[in-house]
Design a protein around this nucleic acid. Sequence first.
DNA 1: ATAGGGTTAG
Length: 776
Amino acid sequence: MRFRRLLGAILRSVHTDTPSSSPGVQKLAQKILNSSKSAGRKSTRKSQTSGKPVADSGIVKCNISITNYMRNGQCESALSLFNSMPSKTSVSWNSMISGYLSNGRFELAHKMFDQMPHRDLVSWNIMITGCIRNKNLGAAKILFDQMPERDVVSWNALLSGYAQNGYVDEAKRTFDEMPVKNEISWNGILAAYVQNGRIEEARRLFDSKGSWAVVSWNCLMGGYLKKRMLLEARQIFDRMPMRDEVSWNTMISCYAQNGQMEEAKKLFDESPVRDVFTWTAIVSGYVQNGMLDEARRVFDEMPEKNAVSWNAMIAGYVQCNKMDLARDLFEAMSCPNISSWNTMITGYAQNGDIVEARSLFDRMPCRDCISWAAIISGYAQSGHSEEALHMFVEMKRAGEMLNRSAFTCVLSTCAEIAALELGKQIHGRLVKAGLEMGYYVGNALLAMYCKCGCIEEAYDVFGGISDKDTVSWNTMINGYARHGFGKEALKLFQNMERAGMRPDDVTMVGVLSACSHTGLTDTGTTYFYSMDRDYGIIANAKHYTCMIDLLGRAGRLDDAQNLMRNMPFEPDAASWGALLGASRIHGNAELGEKAAKMIFTLEPWNAGMYVLLSNLYASSRRWREVGEMRLKMRDTGVRKVPGYSWVEVQNKIHTFSVGDTTHPQSHQLYAFLEELDLRMKQEGYVPATKFVLHDVEEEEKAHMLKYHSEKLAVAFAILNVPAGRPIRVIKNLRVCEDCHTAFKYISKIVGRLIILRDSNRFHHFNDGVCTCGDYW
DNA sequence: ATAGGGTTAG
């Protein structure tokens, strides 16, 4: 999921290549200056006719060279030419500043701007644009307010800055305040709506005015493309008084991206011009529709290719996990850009080859935030959370800035490994960068807080999202449900309806699981049977699983089985899993065994099932079967996923496995656990030894339970997290039942809130009770 | 063909 988003981010980001500067610049500067001496007079005469002071033509030629060097990314050459100039105009300075900015050298540009003897209007405008490109809208606004005079360019720059950063209302205010408006201003406000997904408002604005520039027609059409509104886009295309290449390309992309390759091809043949954009649109259209062979055929036919075309083809192979073909193309590219490298890194990471991903990461000539996001996600995804964290720190040290996509990606990594402190830091940097708004980032932030066990903070973020979409509501509703706050989830669902948002199938999974996790059997049943009637949502396997869980929890095992028999599709492993859970809790070993065996048939690789079934046998002392299970696991090569738990303290993740003695504080931990054990027993705790698999003496079993990974993690957190703060522990598997009982006692004894995330849900232990109601 | 603001493909 996250890799898909990352791949999208790669494909959206724009990069400029930076060849190294060439030598012999001094010589060239001298040559230019010498040759221009004779031609100098002419330009002076011209200046008298125009009435404007025009510089010596030698200076002009140097300025042109500076611009050209900068366009080629040769900042050093530009600078030495600039330094060798005996006299300079403001154009010389402005060319340097602008060049630095387009090469991403913000600090150098700013230094030049400060040193410049006479800043003119253009200098200010360049800096404003530079700040905006550097994602520093705040600095742009300060410059705008400071500058001695403003022209329409200044206003347009600010307008587009607001638009690009999601501040549509500020953009509108700026537009209304502008003393003079031109075509670009009008396009700016139109783009503000389009870029921020407000296509209806864009259309209203468009219809309110008679004539628009071709650019604006294209912009509106592009808006419809993003919303996949093909008919509207085509209507605009047909109504356009004039078309340029962009118009054709936008319309062709529109069809290509929506799977209508025949229409795209037709328009491609009709188009008066076919440039790299046109060809690439067709190639990526085939790629996006999974037609790799077609894509490759067109790709090989292309008269000219640029990096984008190559990358589209490579991304196609990566998406289909054909890393060998992707590698062949990547190596055939004359100069791969950052996107090419990023695509390959993402590909290896999603294929589980983190070593190759890292090797490419280390070898790439320069990195951007997507590269970092890719490698961090790769590590997190493959379970190397420590390494993921380490790379976060490295990234900060390298001074890398995150963009919206990278923020989203990194936040979901934080969510996955529950790196809360880090997540909070990222949140802070989001606010600082002025990027905390907007669907994707806002929703990722919300999900991060939910998954890190901070449901209140999640709700704060939820409240701050101005344009809540279905995903925002679903994330919050599901978050409440997973935390065991069923009433809050259902209340939010009612608010959602009141806000006029239409629930979808994901919403209903949240609603049903809220009912299930809170034991609201009747409410859940009512929702389940009214879903289709009220919202046209047909129950899928997940909804049925929620219902089996809901009925099973209430002890209605027969009803649960009946529902399963009447499902319009074959029960999957998850449905049987829900039944197994219910059987286990209500002590129906026979049904549990049947369910577990069904799961074996469906998912022979599912190690968790072997363990669950072993537990089931162990709890009824059927040691022979326990032994058989162990043999079966060995024969099928299935390995039990080792259980481990972790805690984040001061930005560091501390991981524990069962009986762990590797932690530096382990002596202290074991002593503390002994002490807790004693106090728990005084309060009435009895170790649930039936959950120990092995056929050993009771006393030995109790000993084994005492040092489960989650117990070690909780003990560590109590000793290291300042009093008054909640304790947040994460376990990769389901929490052990004995630990669950123990944590209820511990929460009361030490007077702390313990929030435990296991592979299924959240448990909040407080003053002797858990929000799961002891059913999970 | 010297510097600043708007639209398209990954």
